[in-house]
Design a protein around this nucleic acid. Structure first.
Lengths: 324, 324
DNA sequence: CTGAAAGCGCTTACAG
DNA sequence: CTGAAAGCGCTTACAG
């Protein structure tokens, strides 16, 4: 492999000059610059990134820690982050925390040791302290890690949109399957939904709302829906995630209930699967690309430090909800 | 950040000794070793990985290029690879090729520039030449990249298992929805299925087999299934992927056909979704963990160089297939 | 505007 | 078994 010295020799300049040309330092005059560039070309020179990293104490990498890359929402986010990082010539180093606080801490540490441009973390359910000072910027996405800034969908606002939608369709007997209340997301979605319904409900036109807490899993949604539907059946069920909602769909099918004829169902996230199930699911699309962009911008210092970003989700109306 | 020099001073030894202790070099005697280790501890020393990389010309990273991380099979594979790499103290650098040969080439190049331990690539549909010599080992998984060794499921063998299964259930009128014949996977699966059916078919007990070529997408499976089912309806459809098979399930539902009553359906891959659709899908489970392990072993030189690995898939029988 | 040179923090022959 | 020292390939003040 040719080094910067070989290029300098070939171009008849000093290594400093080659380095300046390569870093787009404007001070090098055109003729010299051309000579350097053609030497680079002729030799097929590529800078040694390890040497550069040692000198500059920074490497063109973004660290990413997700609870589980096979979760469709996280993999969508990872893809958007990778795309956004690539736009800035950065690669993404990926680690799974397996939703475990201890593993998460280790992964973030290991990532930081590689002096990346920054680290993005989608926090594990229970998140522990990092216990390491560092000047590598850290931002969390979707689920907050520690006291670090967070780029997330406006969960409360999205849930309120679902509430508006169902109310607008005439539903007055609604069940809400919440996500785990131990999580910020679970709480925000629930609160947004419940508060909006309470605001819409009035003595002459009351809404009866039942709330149950679930786990963001298909199986769990199915199981909870069975219980909810067995009793005083609602005309609509809003679930805190698409996975829960798809579980509801399964339960409805087993119980021979027609969706949306007998029951309207809405989710949250708009995972790929949401438009593949039967009927296709009405949901809130999370702005993954916007979240990725906000996170990267933060890491590159293009965004007010330490400030949260709340991006609006979009109501996607499909076949699973219907006027009563 | 303390450096190795600080540790050496604190322990009253030379930097060489510290380095040796840290690299588990056995030559350092117990008392010195202990002194070094406690100095490391006291200072919270962490080696500068960039410096180490510059010296050793290698960094504890595995590069991974996938066509699209949101594809459930690829994200499953990515997770297994990450786990396997972590066992060896390596992190994974991830890049999406977006199924584009040019992007793939660039990503692999960018990865190699970071002198990783090795690069694993799941090739894009059309794969182009790398055009760069390197001593970084490269192996492809699932879909072959260039002339590099491949770790993949025994696709033909897996398809043959599906053929045996359907034949065993008494199906004698079968349709096979193949994957793109421009891909090795598509060809291998088709060939395995067709050859086994031909072997099983005999003049006294003939099997009628129709084959159609598809694209590995849900939509495509649905569309092809409509055509296949509209004509001379088979009693079983085997699809070259779960995504295709799930498309078939949708089409069957729209046509009011009962699966598995009127029609048996089988897929290939065992993606998460396969066990979530109704009815749950009979399929071949790809040995993702085995593939990840084989790939990593190859990169670490624990496996015969330049030799392909073909791992057996496992037949998972669920509700979508039934005796005729 | 360009060159000469220091120095980033390690690892590893080479001595002893 | 341990130390002294070279050197990996860059970037960047510092001169001129």
């Amino acid at each position: 492999m040719p080094t910067i010295i070989d290029v300098a020799k070939k171009a008849g300049v000093s290594v400093g000059t080659v380095s300046r040309v390569l870093s787009n330092n404007e001070t090098v005059k055109e003729p010299l610059k051309r000579r350097v560039l053609s030497a680079v070309d002729a030799l097929g020179y590529k800078p040694n990134l390890a040497a550069r990293a040692l000198r500059t104490n920074r490497v063109d990498v973004i660290g990413l820690v997700v609870p589980d890359i096979t979760n469709p929402f996280f993999s969508q986010l990872a893809k958007s982050i990778e795309t956004e990082a690539a736009l800035r010539g950065h690669m993404v180093m990926l680690a799974n925390s397996h939703d475990d606080a201890e593993t998460e801490r280790k992964q973030i540490s290991a990532l930081i040791d590689r002096i990346p441009r920054g680290v993005i973390v989608i926090a594990a359910a229970e998140t522990g302290p990092l216990g390491q000072e560092t000047d590598v910027p850290i931002i969390s996405v979707d689920r907050r890690f520690e006291g670090f800034p967070l780029a997330a969908t406006d969960h409360a606002g999205g849930s309120a949109k679902i509430a508006d939608h169902l109310f607008g369709l005439g539903h007055r007997k609604i069940a809400y399957i919440a996500g785990p209340q131990s999580t910020e997301v679970g709480r925000a979605r629930r609160q947004g939904f419940v508060q909006r319904i309470e605001a819409l409900s009035s003595p002459p036109d009351p809404v009866s709302l039942t709330t149950v807490e679930g786990q963001f899993h298909y199986e769990n949604g199915e199981q909870i829906a069975r219980e909810v539907l067995a009793q005083d059946r609602p005309t609509a069920i809003a679930a805190a995630s698409d996975q829960l909602a798809i579980g509801v769909l399964r339960a409805a099918r087993d119980l021979k209930l027609d969706v949306p004829g007998d029951l309207s169902v809405a989710g949250f996230d708009d995972i790929d699967l949401a438009s593949l199930v039967v009927p296709r699911l009405t949901t809130i699309r999370q702005p993954t690309e916007g979240l990725a962009k906000a996170a990267i911008q933060y890491l590159f210092g293009e965004r007010a430090a330490a400030e949260d970003a709340a991006l609006e989700g979009k109501l996607i109306i499909r076949g699973s909800t219907q006027a009563i």
